[in-house]
Amino acid sequence: MIKHASLFSQLIALIDRKKFHELVYQHQSERFAKKFNSWEHFVAMLFCQIAQAKSLREICGGVACCMGKMKHLGMKKAPNKSTLSYANAHRPWEMFQDLFYEMLATCKMATPGKHKFRFKNKLLSLDSTTISLCLSLFPWAKFRRTKGAVKLHLLLDHDGYMPSYAYISNGKKHDVTIARTISLSPGSIITMDRAYNDYRLFALWTEDRIYFVTRLKDNADYEVVKNFKVPQKRNILSDQLIRFTGARAKKDCPHDMRKAVVWDNVNSRQIVLLTNHLDFGASTISAIYKDRWQIELFFKALKQNLKVKTFVGTSENALYIQIWTALIAMLMVKFLQFKSRFGWSLSNLVAFLRWNLFTYRDLWEWIHSPFEVLPIEPQPVQYSLPLQVPGQHLY
């Protein structure tokens, strides 16, 4: 007797079915549905992400090949290509967005208690990645004359390197526009690259006791108010208190800022950092900005291990559903990574899950000992041949 469902079934069990159906009712996702419900739609799109199905045909065919194991998933039958395509084009993507935040609340319970730094402030990174699209297939995603694109804006929490905020926009929307809409708690430290330089935003954050670490623009006009002592045998070249002197910069940001020049040994160059935090040492400011690289690694892992570069639908709604499902799948994988004692890398965990999606074994034992927990095989059925009557052939 098989005591466990497939790994895929146990992975999907991380979703609270009650909250899922509440979201379905809230967004009226099944208002005109007849047979293919929202749960079956979500399972099919999650299968697309974990199994890395490249087309609607592969999703429907892959699910159909495993229909004997689909009852554990709450599916009656595999969808047709036209049915799945219509659902992607017409069902509200906002439901998948809200499901992402529901899953995020579950994952936060398993994240490490704090980041690697000694200070207790919440540390965040803000950045965006551009997803290139073919303009002839995605005419709604106009970016340049001959190119299409959308942007995925992400706020990464360094407590476990989990995304705490995500937003999808067209490729033309400026990063600063999104940064102005993000709500941050007082005392938080947010690090970002030079694309987010906005003096009015810097002043607003300073007045709200929100700290930032970014790179100073090359053409910034300022005067040095005070020179701080530089730590010995570190990569800090200078540490200064500055005040902006440009007419517009002085008006938008009248507060004193801190400028630290850091030597980058890897690329043999100077990096000029700007921050409104006046108490931390220059070495700590440098380490905070260096840890911003984790959001770049998150984007890299998302694009390499899940389906966010090629899409199974060309409508805006279908693309948004696929990206939000990819983010939900990433949260699930990160949750397993936190719970495991094996020390998985994220790419290896995704690959091993893909190879063992429909094997029968206990998920939680498997993530601790993937090479020791063997799959459970069903007992073979014994068949007996009928007795042969003299003078009669069996075939």
Rank of each mutant, 00 (worst) to 15 (best):
M1T: 12
M1Q: 14
H4I: 08
L11E: 08
L11G: 08
A13V: 07
L14M: 11
I15W: 08
K18C: 11
K19N: 14
F20N: 02
E22K: 06
V24F: 01
Q28W: 04
Q28M: 02
S29K: 03
F32W: 15
F36S: 03
S38M: 13
W39V: 01
E40R: 04
H41Y: 05
F42W: 11
V43I: 09
A44R: 10
M45W: 09
A51V: 04
A53P: 00
E58W: 00
C60W: 08
G62V: 08
A64E: 14
C65Q: 13
K69T: 13
M70K: 02
K71R: 13
H72K: 09
L73K: 03
P79F: 07
N80R: 10
T83A: 02
A87M: 10
H90K: 12
M95R: 06
Q97G: 11
D98P: 00
F100P: 13
M103L: 07
M103K: 12
T106S: 12
C107T: 13
M109R: 07
A110V: 09
T111H: 09
G113D: 09
F117Y: 05
N121I: 03
L123R: 11
A141S: 03
F143D: 13
K147W: 14
K151G: 06
H158V: 07
S164H: 02
A166E: 10
N170Q: 11
T177S: 07
I178Y: 02
R180W: 05
S183D: 13
P186F: 01
G187D: 10
Y196D: 01
D198Y: 00
D198G: 00
R200D: 10
L204R: 12
T206F: 14
D208Y: 07
R209F: 12
F212S: 08
T214G: 04
L216E: 06
Y222K: 06
Y222L: 08
N227Q: 15
N227E: 15
N227D: 15
K229V: 12
Q232C: 11
Q232K: 15
N235C: 06
N235M: 12
I236K: 03
S238H: 03
S238I: 04
L241R: 10
R243I: 06
F244G: 04
T245V: 03
T245H: 00
T245N: 01
G246F: 00
D252G: 01
D252S: 06
C253P: 04
M257K: 01
A260F: 01
A260H: 03
V262H: 10
N265M: 13
V266H: 13
Q270I: 02
L273S: 03
F280T: 08
F280V: 10
A282F: 02
S286V: 05
L297E: 14
K300M: 11
K300T: 09
L302K: 06
K303F: 03
Q304V: 04
N305S: 14
N305A: 06
V308T: 11
V312M: 09
S315Y: 02
Y320H: 07
Q322C: 00
M330R: 05
M330T: 09
M332T: 05
F335M: 14
L336Y: 06
Q337H: 09
W344D: 05
S347T: 12
F352G: 15
R354H: 13
W355M: 14
R361E: 12
L363H: 01
E365M: 08
P370Y: 12
V373Y: 07
E377Q: 14
E377V: 11
Q379Y: 13
Q382Y: 10
Y383I: 05
Q388F: 06
Q388Y: 07
H393R: 14
